[in-house]
Nucleic acid binder design. Structure first.
Length: 269
DNA sequence: GTTGAGCGTT
């Protein structure tokens, strides 16, 4: 999958994981490898992906063999422009080998003068065991649900993700997640209901149904060039092309929506 | 064709 050739975590012995944030959703492990491998021995790169869509989640885990090389990669690659976005490289906190980072004292290895305090934990060594009780278990679950919900209502409310953590467990992502698949899968069984409501929600005038033109073509009654500023090119093209809009069918099934076949529609019903 | 806080897999 997103590995170099293995199915699971290769060998987390004496390895140090880095968390790479803010990468593009199109960036793959192969794209990050040459970047990180230049600063040390990269053992593995893993990019978590969405369970449903399989798309990248926007961050990756780069596993180094040595701590000093990992730290060097953080210094060199943190803030680097990758695929048009500035990535954020930091040590993984909640990973399976988070303890190893402590043993290696990576944090203290390079107290370099990095004024990027945006992703630095000065004294994180004390919370070695806290990462489990704090967010680890909740996060691994809530965060996933958050994403699932956010993908549907994306862009509607930015603050929505903050408060959704509390109630996210109440929702079942399987029901919602597979819902879209069920629509496509059972579309033939539900073709009647789908076709009947599809044109209504796709068309800007649901009640008018497929009668956008009031009475006659306005283009014919009024001069099209009368508009001083080019009223709207889209308007002319819409009315000018065909007074009767093309089939309002959402997909390639125009027959089902406007002219229901006796055998098809009745058969499903 | 989409978005942008965050922490991981057979």
């Amino acid at each position: 999958m997103s590995h170099f050739g293995r199915s699971g975590p290769p060998d987390i012995s004496d390895t140090y994981s880095l968390l790479v944030l803010n990468i593009t959703f199109r960036t793959t492990a192969d794209d990050l490898f040459p970047l990180f491998d230049k600063y040390g021995k990269v053992v593995d790169i893993f990019i978590p992906k969405d369970r449903r869509t399989g798309e990248s989640r926007g961050f990756a885990f780069v596993r180094y063999k040595y701590a000093d090389e990992a730290q060097k990669a953080v210094d060199r690659l943190d803030g680097r422009m990758v695929d048009g976005r500035e990535i954020t490289v930091q040590f993984a906190k909640y990973g399976p080998n988070a303890e190893r980072i402590h043993k290696g004292r990576i944090i203290e290895t390079a107290p370099r003068s990095r004024y990027r305090s945006r992703s630095r934990s000065p004294s994180r060594k004390r919370y070695r065991d806290d990462y489990k009780d704090r967010d680890y278990r909740r996060r691994s679950r809530s965060r996933s649900y958050d994403r699932y919900e956010r993908d549907r209502h994306r862009g509607r409310d930015k603050d929505y993700r903050r408060r959704s953590r509390s109630r996210s467990t109440s929702l079942d992502y399987k029901g919602r997640g597979r819902g879209r698949y069920d629509d496509e899968r059972n579309s033939r069984s539900r073709s009647r209901s789908v076709d009947s409501r599809s044109p209504a929600r796709r068309s800007p005038s649901p009640r008018r149904s497929r009668s956008p033109q009031r009475s006659g073509s306005p283009q014919r009654s009024t001069s099209p060039r009368k508009s001083p500023r080019g009223e709207s090119p889209a308007n002319r093209s819409r009315d000018g092309r065909s007074p009767t809009p093309r089939s309002v069918s959402p997909r390639g099934r125009p027959d089902a929506s406007r002219s229901p076949s006796p055998r098809n529609s009745n058969g499903d019903e």
